[in-house]
Design a protein around this nucleic acid. Structure first.
Lengths: 113, 113
DNA sequence: ACACGACTTGCGAATGTTATCAAGTCATGT
DNA sequence: ACATGACTTGATAACATTCGCAAGTCGTGT
């Protein structure tokens, strides 16, 4: 409330602005995962993963619970999935428009004829 | 291409992860603005604004052109508008769910009765 | 009680981002 | 040609993020 909306938005996007956190959210939006499962798919140190998970927890994007000896994470904001999909389509749009411009910047020898 | 998609996504979100850049995109998604117009609405130094605009330009989110003595910016990826709206609704969802939990953490004296 | 696997936390070095100041470019009016 | 307004760029200090290592917690099986 005291925080202006545009600042909250910036913080929200900032927490999405890290490759490991993107991967985590992609995996979690398929299904819940225990930490050691995430670890198999994402090649980083356990402590690093744990820290990235903490970032996502702080912003309430994921929640965790203990199941026996493992800790399971799940997305608490399902809309994040849409955001990731939206990002993908926007990115492919940008990539396509840059491909149009590229010939002007690319040596002729590199251009297929 | 060589860059994995999840990394491109992270970079994309990272460029959204700054309050000034959010404000810029919000203003530009209403209509094109010259830099001095943005400056009136966003209270930062001209050079700082210019740098934030440069970040948005680098990621192809905005484009600029000169009109006489002024430089006009416009969004090149209209879908960004949807993203900003989506962020807002997600944030208000998170805020609402936190309001539910808050009473447990708030001193009784601070709670209206 | 002890060992082990599954995580998390604290710490510090390396790295990246942001804000400000000074200097520079470019177009327009005089 | 010169001054002025509108921006951009370069340099740098302050600040924030990230990563790996060591150490710690918490369950489960022995």
């Amino acid at each position: 409330m005291a925080v202006p909306l545009y600042q909250a938005k910036a913080e929200f996007f900032k927490t999405l602005g890290h490759p490991a956190r993107i991967r985590i959210l992609e995996l979690l939006s398929e299904r819940d995962h225990a930490v050691h499962e995430l670890l198999e798919s994402i090649a980083i140190e356990p402590s690093n993963l744990s820290q990235q998970l903490a970032v996502l927890r702080r912003t309430s994007m994921v929640v965790s619970y203990r199941r026996g000896s493992e800790v399971v994470y799940s997305v608490s904001v399902p809309e994040v999935r849409d955001l990731l999909l939206a990002a993908r389509s926007i990115l492919s749009g940008i990539a396509a428009s840059q491909a149009d411009l590229e010939p002007e910047l690319t040596p002729v020898s590199a251009v297929a004829r």
